[in-house]
Design a protein around this nucleic acid. Structure first.
Length: 336
DNA sequence: AGCACA
């Protein structure tokens, strides 16, 4: 009766393999926040990132300065690059600048939590997302933080590697550096496959995969180089998840984007539309397609079904990180 | 603007 389950000991005392022994700087320094930024906003922005250990806002200077500690220098650098040029608040025109810090963030026992927070509780580490505190994990899908978290994440039992425990087939998560208005809104009828255009010449498959593969409903993607322009096809499990991403990542800017935001359109030739031996093939017109898709097509008339879930509850603090696209891109006329 | 693969 007194035997404590061994696996619990692992959870309560993660004892990260080789973190504090390094002298190397594994802290990032972030500027560009609006003056009214909250400590919690920084934490919520970063806590999903692999290797995140703690963060702190410093308000003593002219402008708020953010510091965030990661498990390794490589993880810190990955986070730094992902935060670079992130549009933190498009209303105040806040664009983040991130660098490696001069020295590591000093974390006292209570971590970055305010004094009012239960001091006996461990500082939030990368392992805490297994116990969501606000809402179901699936409700947390801010555009700035694609869903690399809950469903695909590997708990801290994994030995650390440069990618923070991601399996080899996967790729480090990528957050948009920001959003830019899309030029041409001509599009095809909604389907389960997205066509991504207006990508930079240097955009890599890994970068695209890092952005899209964590999105809800993601199935597969294919990158195509066409001389100067790179395009990409992404299949989703159904039309509504494709619609969510079409909406949420429209105009997303990657670090390699050199011509504005990506253009997301529905594919002219979606995955799974053509099957061998479908006989008559009397469907390609425009209205109805295959019987299996007919029910999904209904969803197109009520796109609202896809959006509210992503907006989460009113008390979710992640919303301000990047305003919901519905209020920024769709409803807003082209303000430059 | 550029729509492949099954």
């Amino acid at each position: 009766m007194a035997a404590p389950p061994a696996q619990y000991a692992q959870w309560s005392a993660p004892a990260p393999p080789a973190d504090t022994s390094h002298d190397e700087v594994r802290t990032i320094f972030v500027l560009g926040f609006p003056p009214d930024v909250k400590e919690r906003e920084l934490q919520n922005l970063l806590r999903w990132w692999p290797g995140y250990e703690a963060s702190q806002m410093n308000f003593k200077g002219d402008q708020p300065m953010g510091f965030a500690l990661f498990s390794t220098a490589a993880m810190a650098m990955a986070a730094r690059d992902a935060l670079q040029n992130l549009v933190f608040d498009s209303e105040t025109n806040s664009v983040l600048r991130a660098e490696m810090a001069k020295k590591n963030l000093y974390v006292k026992r209570g971590g970055s939590e305010p004094a009012t927070y239960d001091p006996s509780k461990r500082m939030r580490t990368g392992g805490d997302y297994s116990a969501p505190q606000y809402a179901a994990p699936s409700a947390f899908v801010p555009p700035a933080a694609p869903t690399w978290g809950p469903q695909s994440y590997i708990p801290p039992s994994a030995p650390y590697d440069p990618y923070g425990g991601y399996s080899v087939a996967q790729v480090p998560p990528v957050a948009p550096a920001g959003y830019a208005p899309v030029q041409n809104t001509k599009d095809n009828p909604p389907c389960n496959t997205l066509f991504i255009g207006n990508l930079g010449e240097a955009t890599s498959e890994a970068e695209l995969r890092g952005l899209f593969s964590g999105q809800p409903g993601f199935r597969q993607m294919k990158v195509l180089r066409q001389g100067k322009s790179t395009v990409c096809f992404i299949e989703f499990g159904d039309v509504s998840t494709a619609m969510s991403v079409h909406q949420n990542l429209q105009g997303a800017v990657l670090t390699t984007s050199d011509r504005g935001g990506m253009r997301i359109q529905y594919s002219k030739n979606p995955y799974g539309r053509k099957r061998e031996g479908m006989g008559t093939g009397a469907q390609q017109s425009d209205g109805v397609v295959a019987p299996t898709q007919a029910s999904q097509v209904k969803l197109e008339t009520t796109p609202a079904t896809a959006v509210p879930e992503l907006n989460g509850g009113p008390e979710i603090a992640l919303a301000p990180v990047l305003p919901p696209p519905s209020s920024v891109k769709s409803e807003q006329p082209q303000a430059v």
